[in-house]
Design a binder for these strands. Structure first.
Lengths: 351, 351
DNA sequence: TTGGCAATCTGTAACGTTTCAGTATATTGA
DNA sequence: TCAATATACTGAAACGTTACAGATTGCCAA
């Protein structure tokens, strides 16, 4: 009554990780049946299915990733592509944590694919697509006309971008409403009497550069304030460059009485530059800054801040890629976080 | 004269990634020969070897990771195990970048394996070992008696730790000399006349907690200064907790006139707490802090800092694991970075 | 000439999985 | 009753790689 034991099946039990063969041996079924039973295929009897799944759970069966990958091409890997030297510090860990959070409940692993300044940003993308090293990709530093997005779209590689593109192509993204941020910042500065505003923008070339610029400009004309050009530096410049440039502009006759800064680290440099010029934050000038961790208020109580949640960004991006892989419509996997209110620490709400 | 074309070999060329079969077809050799030629096996003719390697390069052959992994068990993956909520922000990105830098020149991928507060730190380790998901592992938050290190040692999983253990077991590590840091910090504070020092330590339990404590205590008795207990908080506590506790202790009659802080973010909180109590940094009290990015001097010019390079840590850790995998002796893969001098920004070198 | 041996090369099997093309058994329709 | 069909299962093949156990050839010593 025991018809298994195909001569070859040299006692599949004993040591090593359990495989389908182990399960087949234990249940007395064929590996095909076991495989199907585990993925709830319809042509498996209900009881058999339950039995297989029970045994699998009992002995802690986990599908061999290499086997699955070789057979199906599915890697169960999501790749986060990062610029190794430009990417701002705290971004990264937050995004990674956000992504991890979501992937933790799935069979997916997160791999980090870095590229450095010297390299073509397309290189890691090409690598991933050509070698099929990932089922999905997350990129940041998104550009209006992003060759990476176009390439992945053309090659059918599921991806999500941190930041939007502007190519008339629809794909998943997560973005922070930087237009709203810049506008709110300007309005806030205007509300406390600031009239000559400078913007420390994201690096030109990235999509949110123009979002930020537009939000800044729109609110500027709305409140009737004027702009002091400050576009020789961006948040991609070094702390020292920003600091010097700030000090320089603050020593002019017509100097800004308000700054809008797109990054927290850069804000430290702006404040340092202001103080280098012998001026005082909150008295001579106010600064509204984005921040991702809640630390700027410790730096100077006079700072005004807007929070951007990168952990959330990571989660959303991960959810989007998974959704896309799962067959959802790309258009349904886009999220935009509207900037929250400008927060102050020292003074009460403005007039 | 054309003896290939084993009926089965249905024109291995055309589309899809090139495989060994493709190469075999193109060179007219067997896949075994091609496989060996590519890895410089000795029993392959010099010319054949060159020819195969040339063709391989020409058509951009890359070994299929799943194939290799399934066959050999080698994953070509290094896993960085991170605590998702405790790990201090800038740590992470720097370490990741450091690791990436090294892995970039190798066939290895970096995967991030997270675990959260709620979980047993052993869980990700067990997962990695049981599923064989990585060829090597990097862990941080190392403890004197670290069950993860012991487990991996027992199971033959190559790993390196960020921070040392103290179990009498030899394994690769990279560490920053926190004893030297704390000593230097105390000496510096003493040299500018500070006599009542408080230490904001790493969380108890981690190895560098006692290193730091010992360095602090040793130098304290050396210079004849006294300690103001401050051990109800550690750098793992929230900014708010540290801030409140600092303010509290600074309002006492006998209060610290010097702080040693093991983390930059915590230092922000300490300074805030000092100022909450109506005291002034540099006048009433001095603070020596570790920092990993060069930002603290922007925060308060009076701060004294010691730099810790986490990017270097990442590189060293990666090199260590790779070395171990490559068969090097674990004892030869240990590095300890001695703390640099305490740096000031505002005042000249102390008397 | 023969046997031995080194130098090169080769086919087959196996890693664990899924898919394809069945096979056996029971059930149904007529 | 027979054939058709549905149900529940199965073996074999394939993904790309490497290891094992040969093959084939040429050369040299005897």
């Amino acid at each position: 009554m025991d018809r298994r034991h195909t001569e070859k099946n040299e006692e599949a039990s004993a040591q090593g990780r359990p495989t389908l063969k182990t399960l087949a041996f234990m249940t007395g079924l064929g590996v095909t049946t076991v495989s199907r039973a585990l993925k709830d295929a319809p042509e498996i009897g209900a009881e058999t299915r339950r039995r297989v799944q029970l045994v699998a759970k009992q002995i802690g069966y986990r599908p061999n990733r290499a086997g699955v990958r070789l057979r199906t091409g599915r890697t169960n890997v999501i790749s986060l592509v990062l610029n190794t030297d430009r990417e701002i510090m705290s971004f990264v860990s937050d995004i990674i944590y956000g992504v991890s959070e979501v992937l933790a409940e799935t069979p997916y692993h997160l791999i980090v694919t870095p590229y450095s300044r010297s390299q073509d940003p397309m290189e890691p993308i090409r690598y991933l697509v050509e070698t099929g090293s990932a089922d999905g990709v997350i990129i940041s530093r998104t550009q209006p006309n992003d060759p990476r997005a176009r390439y992945m779209l053309e090659h059918g590689m599921p991806f999500a971008t941190h930041g939007r593109t502007d190519m008339g192509l629809v794909h998943p993204y997560h973005d922070f409403d930087n237009h709203a941020f810049a506008s709110a910042a300007v309005r806030r500065l205007a509300s406390i009497g600031r009239r000559r505003l400078a913007l420390l923008s994201p690096p030109p070339g990235l999509t949110y550069y123009s979002h930020t610029l537009n939000g800044f400009a729109d609110a500027l004309s709305e409140v009737g304030a004027s702009e002091i050009p400050f576009n020789t530096v961006s948040i991609d410049h070094t702390i020292e460059q920003i600091r010097m440039r700030t000090a320089q502009v603050m020593r002019r006759d017509v100097r800004p009485d308000g700054f809008v800064s797109s990054a927290a680290a850069a804000t430290l440099a702006i404040v340092a530059g202001i103080e280098d010029a012998g001026l005082k934050l909150g008295r001579d000038v106010d600064v509204v800054s984005k921040q991702s961790s809640d630390l700027l208020h410790l730096f100077r109580r006079e700072l005004l801040v807007v929070n951007e949640n990168f952990r959330l960004a990571g989660s959303e991006l991960a959810r989007s890629v998974l959704g896309l892989i799962g067959g959802a419509a790309p258009g349904s996997l886009q999220s935009l976080v509207v900037a929250g209110d400008v927060q102050a620490f020292s003074s009460p709400v403005p007039a």
